[in-house]
Amino acid sequence: MVLNNIEELLEKYENGETSLKEEQELKNYFSQETVAPHLEIYKPMFAYFLVNQQEQFTKDVPLIPIAIETKKVFNYKWISVAAVAVLMLGVYLKSTINNDLGTIQDPELAFNEVSKSLEMISKNFNKGTSTISYLEEYDKGASTLGYLNEIEKGTSIIFKKNQ
């Protein structure tokens, strides 16, 4: 009677029509030591299912690293903010330094300073103009080129004749 029931269940089982409860019944039956000989082939299948139910995931999952990772992203954001702050500070400091031109308050001292620097300018200026004298040589050379005009006159006459 029990065997009949099991056979019926097996057929239903193969058609995918058994409920979870009925499947549990089958599993219980096949986990017994002795099973009807013609049903022996089902035994390893159900045994396999039962064994596999026991398998567990034993590896640890490191949940904390993720928290650190999000923290890192957080840091990057603030690094850019800090960079902008440093940049603006730099610009500010530079502009304040440029405002201080080193003005001299005492008029006599200022006069001396100005004449000194003007003297330096004129000295250097004279040095520059002295080198320009070489240009005269160039002029001489250029004046000899005037003879070329004579040649051109000659050729122009020849061309007119040809035409």
């Binding site: 089982y13 193969e14 058609n15 995918g16 029509e17 022996e40 082939i41 089902y42 390893p44 299948m45």
Partner: peptide, 21 residues
Amino acid sequence: AVRVTLSRARKTIREKLTNTH
């Protein structure tokens, strides 16, 4: 579809087991 797939799988397993057995 789940039922059909399941039924097919179970039948295949049984057939192959019968063969090896």
